[in-house]
């Protein structure tokens, strides 16, 4: 009997789990071209010119740009790769054992650190950041944009040490995505020295996420307690006949 349950459990489909979203096939030609194209963003912005230039640098014919499935929309290809590249960089950074990240113990403080770290990558291309954001909200691109955003918030939650396994899993990721997007938009307008205001903004938002989390846990406990009490009440009334 026990054995059968064990087998059933093992074969059951897991609806949520954390996965490692690394960019696949790093040595493939499309990946190499895009990596090179990223170095041209400070010069051309998020424009397909970056890809054209990268291909030319490798002395391949212009026709090679057909390797990208996005066809006409190569600007977005650059944007998407930029996001993936920086998400991976985040992963690489915290793998470094000397990184100060490892000294932070609290989950939410880690989140703050990671979001700030990710936003730092934007500084170099800040004059063009609005182009990237504009591409991301084009309706046709939204599915890919949201997927990438979810993967970023999933990574951040995972590195921060999130181990929720109920509905909080979704709430946390949605919350992190909201915080990240609003912080990035805030950064767009931020003129303070060293983006001090943005850092303050991130801290504030993560704090409210933290209190939201506490609130959520409280409501969950309250609902569970009252639910059980209600059942017990009904049971006792039924027993009385």
């Amino acid at each position: 009997m026990l054995g059968r349950i064990g087998i059933a459990r093992r074969s059951a489909y897991r609806f949520y789990h954390s996965v490692d979203h690394t960019v696949s096939r790093k040595s493939s030609i499309d990946h190499v071209i895009l990596d090179k194209a990223l170095t041209y963003i400070p010069r051309f912005g998020f424009h397909e010119q970056c890809i054209t230039q990268a291909i030319r640098d490798m002395s391949y014919p212009d026709s090679l740009s057909g390797v990208f499935s996005s066809g006409n929309n190569k600007d977005f290809e650059v944007v998407l790769h930029w996001l993936k590249f920086n998400r991976n960089k985040l992963h690489g950074d915290i793998l470094d054992p000397t990184d100060q990240f490892h000294a932070i113990k609290n989950e939410y403080d880690r989140v703050t650190y990671l979001i700030n770290k990710r936003l730092e990558s934007n500084i170099a291309i800040k004059p063009y950041l609005h182009q990237a954001l504009a591409q991301l909200v084009v309706p046709y691109n939204i599915p890919s944009s949201l997927e990438e955003l979810h993967q970023l918030s999933d990574d951040i939650a995972f590195y921060a040490g999130d181990n929720s396994n109920d509905f909080a899993w979704y709430l946390k990721r949605m919350g992190l995505s909201t915080v990240y997007v609003s912080s990035e938009l805030y950064m767009l307008q931020d003129t303070s020295e060293n983006f001090r205001d943005t850092k303050e903004f991130v801290k504030e938002k993560v704090d409210s996420l933290r209190s939201l989390g506490t609130g959520y846990t409280n409501i969950e406990q309250w609902a569970a307690f009252n639910g059980i009490s209600l059942i017990n009440l009904i049971k006792s009334q039924l027993l009385r006949g």
Binding site: T52, P61, D62, S63, S65, G66, G71, N72
Partner: peptide
């Protein structure tokens, strides 16, 4: 038409060799 757009082929401005 999608096939042609997908390929997006052509000599880019500033290139020195036609395709």
């Amino acid at each position: 038409s999608h096939f042609i757009n997908r390929l997006d082929a052509g000599m880019r401005p500033g290139s020195d060799r036609p395709l």
